[in-house]
């Protein structure tokens, strides 16, 4: 089901004060894929996301999205090109309402400026209406959880799981091609996890998004991913289907440590 090559990452490295957070990383995503990035804590997964979304500048290598290099672009320009993301430690605009959270995320897809806002022009009204509709549309993806009376409530009153959902909705609202999900089910209970796993599948099948996901929950990884990439110490140590990766001795070693008899 893979289509055209969307995102290619070549020999990507980044160092923080002499420390290699990522080393010579190669990676690619095809249209319509769901790729999981796994690896032990500190393996550089979030740095990897930060680099794609333009929040961290790599020291070497290249990131090519649809034939265009993303290097040197600001995060907002990356988002405008169609890569949206969520954050590991849910970072919503807590004091804005739920609807506003998804409305503000459409900033780079809309264009009304000073003139329209001041004179309440017809095109301004039309655009506001569209922003609102699209916002409610993406919120509707999570059933009744985030709509109805919730629309006007501040995001800070949401439960933990709903905040994660809202964050996903917010990334959907930017009308992206690729969504980077940073531990989407972290902190959710098994039932919620199962539900969200289904929804991640739907993100591709119904909405046509391509998904790159960092996840620790192996069940989720197994259920949704087409391909799994394993990072350790900033390097790719394995790539392939879940089955291939999960039986790879290097991966097991990275997670569990070296078996005692081999350690010398």
């Amino acid at each position: 089901m893979s289509g055209e090559r969307l995102l290619t990452i070549k020999n990507l490295s980044v160092t923080f004060g002499g420390l290699h957070a990522l080393k010579d990383l190669n990676f690619h995503v095809d249209e319509g894929e769901i790729v999981s990035v796994i690896g032990p804590n500190g393996a550089g997964k979030t740095t990897f996301f930060n680099m794609i979304s333009g929040m961290v500048t790599p020291t070497a290598g290249d990131i090519i999205f649809r034939g265009e290099s993303l290097l040197g672009l600001d995060p907002n320009q990356v988002t405008a090109r169609g890569i949206a993301r969520t954050f590991q430690n849910v970072r919503l605009f807590a004091n804005m309402t739920i609807l506003e959270n998804v409305m503000v995320a459409q900033h780079c897809r809309t264009k009304q400026g000073l003139w329209g806002s001041l004179f309440n022009t017809a095109s301004f009204k039309k655009e506001e209406e569209e922003i609102r509709e699209w916002g409610e549309h993406v919120l509707g993806f999570f059933g009744s959880r985030l709509i109805g009376y919730r629309l006007e409530q501040p995001a800070s009153v949401l439960s933990y799981a709903n905040r994660r959902r809202l964050e996903i909705a917010r990334s959907m609202a930017t009308k992206p091609t690729v969504i980077l999900l940073d531990e989407p089910v972290a902190g959710m209970n098994p039932k919620e996890t199962e539900e969200l796993t289904g929804l991640i599948g739907k993100l591709r099948s119904e909405w046509g998004f391509t998904i790159v996901m960092i996840e620790h929950d192996m069940k989720v990884v197994r259920d949704v991913s087409d391909r799994v990439v394993v990072l350790d110490h900033g390097e790719t140590i394995a790539q392939g289907s879940y089955e291939e990766v999960s039986t790879n001795p290097e991966v097991i070693e990275a997670y569990l440590g070296r078996p005692a008899e081999e350690a010398s």
Binding site: P75, Q77, F93, V104, H107, S117, T174
Partner: peptide, 23 residues
């Protein structure tokens, strides 16, 4: 307006606002 929402988002968390496509 759209601009006002962007300002609010920036006030709340500038780097997230940037990552959500706000210049």
């Amino acid at each position: 307006s759209r601009i006002g929402r962007a300002w609010m988002a920036i006030r709340e968390d500038e780097s997230v606002a940037e990552a959500m496509g706000i210049n």
